[in-house]
Amino acid sequence: MRRLIGVVVLAGVALAGAGWLLTAPKPLPEGSLDGATGDAERGQLVFTAAGCASCHHAPDAEGEARLVLSGGQRFASAFGTFLAPNISPDPAQGIGDWSLDDFASAVKRGVSPEGQHLYPAFPYTAYARMEDGDLVDLWAYMQTLPASDTPSQPHEVGFPFNIRRGVGAWKMLYASPDWVMTEAESPQLERGRYLVEALAHCGECHTPRDALGGLDRSAWLTGAPNPNGRGTIPGLTPDKLSWGADEIAYYLSSGFTPEYDSAGGHMVEVVENFAALPDEDRAAVAAYIKALPEGGHLD
């Protein structure tokens, strides 16, 4: 009997040890990107497509004030409410004291410079597909933004979700840098896929989630309940959206649907971002949307 208990305890310790190792944060190796210099002008386009300001500007900020990334906006979820942090270049309250490697680990792997998991309310599972060149350019652009000394607010997340190590287990299940649309047969579709699946992270709102809050990739872009409260986010697959490619591209530049209804809610800032991108980018996104299969089964 004592032998059995001993074996069980040993197995328990081994499993806990394995769990500890498997859920460990994995930042980029030291010195991966340091030394790379970016182009801030190209970085502004990455910043716009990735929508950084849309979540990190202060609540109710408008116009130029949206470039002050002081944080504070609230994002409700089934796991609690997340408050966007200050990511301005302020060295004390923002990320001004980060290295490029720190930034890359955060954006592409969801790991903070202190070696902790970031909550996936920050869409690093999409940004994991960001090209390194774009990330370096983005970092260069972000240095040019105004500093804000507004302290970041803590998330309002209760037990057990306030244990960040648990996100390591979540990442094992859901953090895949693979494309969802595995076949993109033209440069335009590749660009559309990169914008949708990586930078603009459309899947985060437009794809349903399972009980653990991970995206259901088998129902990609088929629509979902509004993560921030009531209502639904529409599906974009052909069975849900009958618009033509030119109508999708026009909507992304103007906010007008084919019936000349006008976008509202979070989509307003998405449209404003897309309106600032080149025509070819909106056309590429439209081509990607038209290439989605019915029901979202891409794998």
């Binding site: 509202g264 809610g265 449209v271």
Partner: peptide, 21 residues
């Protein structure tokens, strides 16, 4: 001019119109 109108529509819908059910 359509851009200006779209901006005006969006500005109000951003804050004061609920998502579709």
């Amino acid at each position: 001019a359509m851009g200006g109108l779209g901006g005006a529509c969006k500005a109000c819908h951003d804050t004061y119109r609920a998502p579709q059910s």
